[in-house]
Design a protein around this nucleic acid. Structure first.
Lengths: 133, 133
DNA sequence: TCATCTGTTCTATTACTTATATATCAGATA
DNA sequence: TATCTGATATATAAGTAATAGAACAGATGA
């Protein structure tokens, strides 16, 4: 199974699918250019409605993570992670980092442990492909 | 103004209030034991319904960030950030860290820059109060 | 050619969430 | 006493999440 979801979670299913796909790309399980399952196929595998998968894929497309062609289906964008992030991305991303870290701080997690776990997560990701010469 | 919200955001208002309060605590703007505005007062300041503030405060209470007494109102918990975080907290927190970092990676943010920004956010927080002797 | 699978689009329904609006009550306060 | 507070109840309007069924056109492989 490429992807698992939790129907009991309060995170919407389409959001879980988006998150799992993004994580699979970061982990290197999904390479750039590789195809995702068809919406109907993934919906059948997950035993959910194909409209829900459609919504997740559309979200990934709007976030420039995948491309969707009528011909080749949903494909991980080759240029999603090439070059520096768009200028607007960090402006949207860092406040969310700040909120997440504040939550850890308030619950008593030591700053050093936050950094340790952060480094651990980053180490678990696949190394960036070298820019072709 | 203790707190500002964005009515145009797709983040629910009660969630924004929760996030801002958590951040204010991490920043040291809200000390442990200090009181939050009354629900009606904050609602008036923000020009929103007091039920929305009520929902935010109730969320903060269920997440053990504040205490609510009929007498003293909403107060930042003294023991929210004392001692190590509950064992279940990290299990809930780290997957969200992983999702956020995966998003950065997919959008081409360098792991070193992720770490740099992480350290920067942690540095912006107020130092933990020393455990009384 | 034919059957099938694909993405795309449309309408519809159910259940839940978000935010608002009133109203009431009891305890605390000045 | 008048006022502010938290707490609780009900109601409503708008939006979201997920489901369901249907239809169409392009692509695919037998």
């Amino acid at each position: 199974m490429l992807l698992t979801i939790d129907l009991d979670s309060d995170v919407p299913i389409y959001q879980q699918i988006r998150d799992r796909v993004v994580e699979a790309i970061a982990d290197g399980e999904l390479r750039e250019g590789s195809a995702l399952p068809s919406t109907r196929q993934l919906a059948a595998d997950l035993a959910i409605n194909f409209h829900t998968v459609n919504k997740a894929y559309d979200l990934l497309r709007r976030q420039n993570v995948i491309r969707i062609n009528r011909k080749s289906g949903a494909v991980v964008r080759r240029d999603a992670a090439s070059g520096p992030p768009g200028p607007g991305f960090a402006d949207d991303w860092e406040p969310r980092l700040r909120t997440l870290f504040a939550e850890a701080a308030v619950h008593g997690m030591d700053p050093q442990e936050v950094l340790r776990r952060s480094a651990g997560v980053l180490d678990s990701f696949a190394p960036r492909r070298e820019t072709p010469v």
